[in-house]
Design a protein around this nucleic acid. Structure first.
Lengths: 354, 354
DNA sequence: CTAATATCTTTACGCGCGTAAAATTTATAT
DNA sequence: ATATAAATTTTACGCGCGTAAAGATATTAG
């Protein structure tokens, strides 16, 4: 019960009243706590007139339910975890941003996590996540380095949608880009507009997308009747630019390229490749006077600003995040569907590098 | 109380027992719940022998306290909010990563937030943050567009350390880089090694760092006895690369540069500037045959991979985040100090662009 | 206007844990 | 061994809210 003098004080001084809990807040408006509780869980479940009263009071006295008390008994909260392998990579930052917004719009409370390129970190995140009792998780796994057992165990306990990089048949479903289409389309473009490309990649790529892309390149070249060449460079970890740069230098040193067109497995490798080209004084582009053409894959946020701007095939960020978030939400809300994989097409982005 | 058959089952099947709460967990080990509770709040506060018993049980039955129940009564949790204006900018992603790790190492639970370049988002984050009852917050404000009133109000309720971009005398303290030193040092370098630079910036910069840098440039040029030229380009928002690119084109069109050396207010502007140069066929660098020199400021993670690699003056990421996190933690743990401002020096990174 | 229905109020309990106080056991010092 | 301090157990209460049940009230349909 709220003492009368407090109500009076609140009436006189407005925002000065400190509301400690739902009880006090309800008393202030003159309705019962259970009704207020109902409002917070489903605003439409109360009569319009009471809803107005609550919202009016809400505007004046900035009370909000104690989220810890709210979630204590709830078996599933409104939390959604978003996990990416490396937030310092703007590609992941961008898709995470997109997913985050969709969660908010759907009434969930997203929390962002990055494994920062460290597999052990990924496991710790899953651990942390479990104690958050999330309604669901959107997870872009690290890939090869991921602890499969830990992932599987986690997916068994929390509704998890895998995106970006697939781990076979784990979680609710997979949503990502169609890497086959990516590489096929850009290979096709490169073949049509100049010398057929070679394929520049990491020897031990971080995730299976890279393998799909290599295979798609090989298939496309075979279909077009061109000789294929894959250049796999050394390097571990997530410093793709540096790996690309060093690998390019090494390849140039060995005169490894049998063509003037280089298709990189991803944009970050291509960025490093371009740096190496600049360092060697090699002009890159499709114009006259350029020695080689370089293309990437991903539509990395930075690809527009490389020198020359990078021709690439871009993820449909919006479509991927929409599909991923949508699939998770419908699963959370009860839809039961067998595991399935959605792979969305990318769009060619023609710029001056190739 | 745990029924005997469950204990037996636990003994036989090990991890099969589902422990629902601290009561059951304590009963399993044979100690009292309050002691277990004490352990979780301060492992050293219990006798070594009991601690061992608890940790042994912990290793076997993956029980962890319900964090919602734990935080419900706690006035301050172990949560720490980390808020940046734009996580898609690798500069912020990198410093956030650094801060996050320091929080974990210090026993706090960091949660990452990005305003995604939208001021209203920043306010919403502060709102969300309040309901998290964080022990403290590390906040890099958006700057000019921030809602000062909201910031001030928030800082009055939650121990908040401001970093990166200062808002005068708000929060516990400010930790950031010494923009004066930044610009003075790189201006000095440019003057010593070639034509004195002009200063390329946004007309309406996002945060006060830009003003400090411009002023430091003007002061340095005056001190060195060189004529100063500031080129302020149009553009709102956080798409610095595009603003730099378009601004550079416009400036070149008007033949605005009175010198062959351009010092950009930050690296992202410089990246856009370099793109414009490439688009116009202008060779950038300090070597023979280059038309202009371009330098940035920030030591952006990407600056190593521009073409040419960007000469810049880099934040001491490690020192800044160490000072920021340290100041917050000591304040949380009771240290009372008047508001103060720490500005750390940057290090010149010489690359081929200037 | 009455009946049926939707909404609200009252009352009451439980969640998982923090935490205080008093009694008891254990460790350490004399 | 005894006194003293430290750690632990027992007991008990409260936090802020979800939620169920039963009765009261308001709304809508007929």
């Amino acid at each position: 019960m709220l003492p009368d003098q407090d109500i009076l004080a609140g009436w006189l001084v407005m925002t000065e009243v400190k509301i400690r809990n739902m009880e006090e807040f309800a008393a202030l408006i003159g309705i019962s706590r259970p009704t207020v509780s109902k409002y917070f869980n489903e605003p439409d479940s109360v009569r319009p007139t009471t809803r107005e009263k609550i919202e009016a009071a809400l505007a004046e006295h900035d009370y909000r339910p104690n989220m810890y008390a709210v979630n204590q008994n709830r078996k599933l909260t409104k939390n959604v975890g978003i996990v990416v392998p490396l937030l310092v990579d703007p590609y992941f930052a961008e898709i995470a941003r997109n997913l985050e917004q969709r969660c908010i719009d759907a009434g969930y409370r997203p929390t962002l996590f990055s494994a920062h390129g460290t597999p052990s970190h990924e496991v710790e995140i899953l651990d942390t996540l479990r104690s958050l009792k999330p309604a669901g998780v959107l997870l872009a796994p690290m890939g090869r380095a991921s602890d499969r057992t830990a992932l599987e165990k986690f997916c068994g306990k929390v509704p998890t949608l895998i995106f970006d990089s697939s781990v076979d048949e784990i979680g609710l479903a997979f949503v990502g880009s169609d890497n086959i289409q990516f590489t096929t389309e850009i290979t096709d473009y490169l073949c049509r507009t100049g010398e057929p490309p070679c394929f520049f990649e990491m020897k031990t790529p971080a995730n299976p997308n890279a393998h799909r892309r290599r295979q798609a390149y090989l298939n496309a070249m075979a279909r077009f009747g061109h000789p294929a060449q894959v250049i796999s460079v050394d390097g571990e970890g997530w410093s793709f630019e540096e790996i690309g740069r060093l690998g390019a230098h090494k390849a140039f040193d060995k005169d490894a390229f049998s063509t003037n067109t280089i298709l990189c497995s991803n944009d970050r490798l291509a960025i490093g490749f371009l740096t190496a080209c600049h360092e060697r004084g090699i002009r890159v582009g499709r114009e006259d006077g350029c020695a080689i053409r370089v293309a990437g894959q991903d539509g990395h946020p930075h690809s527009r600003y490389t020198c020359p701007p990078l021709t690439t095939i871009s993820h449909d960020y919006d479509a991927v995040s929409k599909a991923a978030a949508g699939a998770l939400f419908s699963a959370i809300e009860g839809a039961v569907r067998p595991w399935n994989s959605t792979r969305l097409e990318g769009k060619l982005v023609l710029r001056s590098s190739a």
